[in-house]
Every structure is written in structure tokens, then in C-alpha cells.
Amino acid sequence: MSHQYNFAYLDEQSKKMIRRTMLKAIAIPGFQVPFGGREMPLPYGWGTGGIQLTAAILGKEDTLKVIDQGSDDTVNAISIKKFFKTTADIEVTESTENATIIQTRHRIPETPLKKGQIMVFQVPIPEPLQFIEPRRRETAKMHAYQEYGAMYVKLYEDIATYGRIATAFDYPVQVNQRYIMSPSPIPKYDNPKLNQSPAIHFFGAGREKRIYAVPPFTDVKSLDFEDYSFELESWNEPCSICGSTTSFLDEIITDDEGTRLFICSDTEYCQKRSQGGE
């Protein structure tokens, strides 16, 4: 007994439903639109939301890039890429420039995105208020009435206790002056890349069954206060492979004594630079 799966795994009706939800998400920037998320052959929490979005918009002419933690070569990125190669037989690439769709977990590439490109984020927890109020019925009301006081109180409490805002990744943003949105667990370093970006950014949460989006050229502001403005993390040393001083760096432990070195998290960017591209 053998079984033939549809192009990009999902059946066309499911894909259509997802695309409709995506259109709604584009129309209400930053608003989490519920959708009938499907079971996928990869586990929840491993990118099922992103995979469903990619499956829904993928066409035969598309070129797909998949990254995980910035890298094209991590096991989960490889696995997802292989999934689409098998089920859709499309072109895959490591080049940010050449990709039409970039599915990502926890990073936005260092190479600036262009008009026409689509970013698909894998989202574990779409609700930015979840750790303040876990009950969904409550957070829905908070969003509807734009009642975001609790979020600002939390940020204020951070400042009162630690002298700074204590969120290092998944740093909340306000989209188009309206909805507070989770940018997914990207480092806050990547937040500014969302603001007025020429690309479309889609966010898919498979387990929580939510889709949201940031349309091109939309204001995305990281939450802060007038006297405590949003600040980015920085490193004291450059990347030890390509020497970049402007990219997000990963720490690598090289021996049992805990010797550390720092290298670019975006492997494609790093490779391009060290091969003398820029």
C-alpha cells in the first residue's frame, strides 16, 4: 500500500484556508488570526506553524531558504528543507538574496531583505501577553480594548528592579501604532529589522493555531519609555571568522576549561564576508 502526497504535503483546501487567514493577517497588522492548524509530520514546537505557511504559499518557481538560529546547516533547518524538497521538489538556497521565501526560527538574516521577499517565522508562543496573563479569553480582551497597561507595568517593574528591561529575546513590539505583537523569539537585536521592512513578514504558530503578519513598510516599534529607550545588545569583540562587528554573535565553548570564542550566528552572511564578498 502506497500513498501519494499533494504538492508541499497539505491538500489544496487546507492551503487555501491558510492563505485566506494570511490575507486577513496582512489586513490587520500585528493581530493574531486564529486558523485551523493541521497536524504536520513534524512535531509541534519544531516549526509546524511556519511549515504550514510555507506550504500554503509555496509555488513551483519559488526558491526556499530555511534557517534555524541564523544557520542554514542546523539539524532542524536541514530537516525542513528536506521536507519541502521531497514534497514539493522546489529549489532551495542558502543565499538570502536569491530566496523568494525564507523560513526562519529565531533570527532575521543580516543581509537586508528586498521587496517581494517573504519571511516566514516559526512562532512558539504568539501571545505577547502570555506570561503576564495566561488565559486567552483575558488577553483577547486586552488586545481588543488596547489595554496594554499590564505590559508597560511589567517593563517598568524590570527597570525598577534591575535598572533595565529584562527581556533579551522575543522583545514585544507595537505594530502600526495598534497591536502589541511578539516578534517570535528573535534576539531583540533583530527587532529594528522589522520596522519599515520592504519584505512581508508572516508569523505562524502551529500549536497555538494563530497567524499574524507585518506588511511591507509598516511601523514596528520595540516597546520602551521616553527615559529608558530600547537598546540593543553588543559584543566587545568581532566575529572570529569574518571579523564582522555589526552582526549577532554566538558564543562557542571550545574546551573543558570554558575557553570561548564568538562567531556570526548568520552562517551565510559570515561565509559570504569571509570569502571576500564584502
Binding site: 500513498h3 502526497y5 504536520m40 509530520p41 513534524l42 512535531p43 519544531w46 538560529q69 544557520s71 539539524v75 532542524n76 536541514i78 530537516s79 528536506k82 521536507f83 521531497t86 554566538d250 558564543e251 562557542i252 565553548i253 571550545t254 574546551d255 573543558d256
Partner: peptide, 21 residues
């Protein structure tokens, strides 16, 4: 950590298999 002393050893796991019967 991306890399650790002794290395990441993936070993036997269903984690990166596709759940296709």
C-alpha cells in the same frame, strides 16, 4: 551552545525524521 566540548552527538533520535507512515 552551538558547540560543546565533546561535541553534539545526535545519536538515535526520531527528532529529525518526517512523520510519514
Amino acid at each position: 551552545y552551538k558547540d560543546i566540548p565533546g561535541g553534539q552527538v545526535l545519536g538515535p533520535t526520531y527528532d529529525y525524521t518526517h512523520r510519514l507512515i
